[in-house]
Amino acid sequence: MGSPTTVLRYEVLLFLGALALIIFYQLLTGKINARRMLLAKGRAAVGPSTRRWTGELSPSRIQLLVVTIGVSIYLLAKVVRDPGEFTEIPTGLLLLMAGSEFLYLTRKANKLMPFPGILRSIRRMLRRSRNSWSR
């Protein structure tokens, strides 16, 4: 048998692997609820009854999921290839992540803030200022 540190190393790796597998399996089989995660929410997605969803897929959610998975795979691949130190994340990747989050949040805010939506307010303000400048 190896030293305690070797045993601990394998214990931790096995534990993390087991957790990841369990969560992945439960997501696939539906035991962890992932209902409507990629569907658009808010008034635009609501059908004739306020309790029914039209099932409209949300492009902003899909792009956020894709970017998140991409960044995660990049990070893990870097660490597995060079487990000595944390890898530096390129600024471009951070900007991509921030842009993706911004897009998701502005779409969410615009859909869910009924009276009035943020983008509608900004558009209205810009229209008013444009009209006052043109006079």
Partner: peptide, 22 residues
């Protein structure tokens, strides 16, 4: 289901696992 919670879960797991591996 909340996509932002799912994303938080993924990043917590990835960064936690990376830290543990290192």
């Amino acid at each position: 289901a909340s996509l932002s919670r799912f994303q938080f879960l993924i990043f917590t797991f990835v960064i936690g696992a990376s830290f543990t591996l290192i």
